[in-house]
Each structure stands twice: as C-alpha cells, then as structure tokens.
C-alpha cells in the first residue's frame, strides 16, 4: 500500500482522537474535580448530535444549527447538574453510577419520543463539501479536516481558559485539592455547576461536529461512552494533558487496528489500556 493511504489513516486517526478529546476532557474534569463517575456523558454526546440534526433541519445550515445548539446544551447540562447530580456529592460513587445510568435510560427514551428511532443524516454544508485529491484514486474529505481544525480551536480555547483565567485557576486548584479550594472560600457549588455544564457542552459539541460524518442514530452515545472512559483512564484522572495524549493514542490505535489487524481490531484499544494500566496503574499523567 502506498504512503497516501497511510496518510489518510493517520488523518482519520487524529480526527477521531480530537473528537474523543472533546468528550474525555469534560469527563476527566467532572471526575477529577467533582468526583462524579458520569455515565450520562455519552447521553450529552447523543443530545448534541440530535440537536444538531434538528436545528440544522430547521435553519437549513449546519453552522447556525451548531450555534443555536450550544446554548441549549449549556442549559441542559446546568439543569441536569442542579436537578440530579447535585444531590449526590456526599454519596458513594456507586450511587452516582446508578443515578447517571438512570439518566441514560431517560435521555434515550426522550430522544425516541422527540426524534423517533430512525437513522438520520445531517447534510455537510456546501462550503465544506469537497475533498482534497491526494492521488488519482484517493481523496480526503474537507469536512473531516474541518472537524480536526474545530477541535484544535476548541482545545486551544480550553487551554487558554484553564491556564490563563481566574476561573481556570480555580478549576485547576479544584482538580488537585478539592477540600483546600473549599476552605479558601470558593463557592464549590458554583464551580461544580460550571464544570459540569462545561463538560456536558464539550460532549454535545463533539456530537454536533461528528453528526454529518457518522449519521445520527439511537444509542449513538452508548458506544462512545466506554471509549471516552478508556481515554480518561489511560491519561490519568483529572489530567487534561493526559486526556489529550490518551485520546490521540486511542484514536490512532483504533484506526490503525482496523486497517492492520481487522480480525481483532476492537480488542486493540482495550489491550492498550490494560498495558498502560499494568505499567502505570494511575494512568499516564495521573497522580498516585
């Protein structure tokens, strides 16, 4: 096989990794700061994809669809945190698992009530429709490049917020020592609400960006949920840098696994995680 083929796979792997990063960064923050094992994270991805499908259908344009869907996702994440999650901060992890599992059931059912159980596709806007010709018979779609670019922009914006702003400082402090942040008089409820709705919005955003390439179907969130957890654990809980490295590793391992070892492709990702945890039980960038 020629090099352009591998280039395409490399680009696909990176693009998948970037998408996973959007999901995993929110998940790792919710984990690290709030101590919540949020199984409902995949549900936000699903809701993002469906909101994108719905609003793009109404407005006729993907960009306005996404712009309208973002505030809705923020609101939705905030509402879930206030109504359900906030009751559980002092409870055992297992009850959080149980509650967020119930939220998945409810979200999936609401999706089937509002949008039905059909598979939908979201049209790629004219502007991004073409493909870049690499060789005579191999081309790379521009929309996938757009996804990668959008993820990079979001990642840089996140980096800026977390490293350079006061809010980011509080978040970083919360991730390393929650009790101390509380003791310093920072309103932890407010911080939790912001972190949770931010994470939910990032997950929804990943769903929106992926909607035109992956189509929108019931159960879309369940499949990506476990992979996001794998990324978080490989990177180390609470570490955004770890989530980034972990997401790229998984994205590339999954893509190349499918090409090079098709008969055991799905095992590659989990074998990678087991190997990393065997070598470093706390993840690549996790604290002991």
């Amino acid at each position: 096989m020629e090099s352009s083929f591998y280039l395409i796979q490399l680009l696909n792997g990176i693009q998948y990794g970037f998408l996973l990063f959007l999901l995993a960064s929110g998940l790792t923050l919710i984990f690290g700061i709030m101590g919540i094992i949020n199984l409902a994270h995949g549900a936000f991805y699903m809701i993002g994809a469906y909101l994108c499908y719905w609003l793009t259908g109404i407005t006729g344009n993907l960009f306005t669809g996404i712009l309208l869907a973002i505030p809705l996702s923020i609101l939705f994440g905030y509402a879930v945190e206030r109504l359900a999650i906030s009751h559980l901060y002092k409870r055992d992890h297992l009850y959080q698992v149980l509650l967020t599992y119930a939220l998945i059931l409810i979200a999936n059912e609401l999706q089937s009530i509002f949008w039905g159980n059909d598979v939908h596709s979201v049209p790629i806007p004219e502007l991004l429709k073409g493909a870049i010709q690499l060789t005579d018979n191999q081309a790379y779609p521009i929309y996938r490049l757009f996804i990668s670019a959008a993820c990079v922009v979001i990642a840089i914006a996140m980096y800026w917020v977390i490293q350079k702003t006061r809010l980011g400082m509080t978040i970083r402090a919360g991730a390393s020592n929650r009790e101390m942040v509380q003791a310093l008089g920072i309103n932890i409820n407010w911080l939790f609400a912001i972190v949770f709705s931010m994470g939910a919005t990032l997950a929804a955003l990943a769903g929106m960006l992926a909607a035109p390439v992956n189509t929108v179907y019931p159960g879309i969130g369940d499949n990506i949920l476990i992979i996001s957890f794998v990324v978080v654990v490989i990177g180390g809980i609470g570490s955004i840098k770890g989530a980034f490295i972990g997401a790229l590793l998984i994205g590339l391992a999954d893509t190349f696994g499918k090409v090079l070892l098709p008969e055991m492709a799905s095992m590659v990702v989990y074998a990678l995680m087991a190997a990393v945890l065997f070598w470093r039980p706390q993840g690549l960038f996790g604290k002991v």
Partner: peptide, 16 residues
Amino acid sequence: IYFIMLTLAFAQMCFY
C-alpha cells in the same frame, strides 16, 4: 476507578 476500568477492559477483550 482504575480497578473498575481494568476489569471492564478485560471483559471487553473477552467480549470482542
């Protein structure tokens, strides 16, 4: 949580 995820990883490997 690492134990949770590692047992999940092995189960998923068996599944696949």
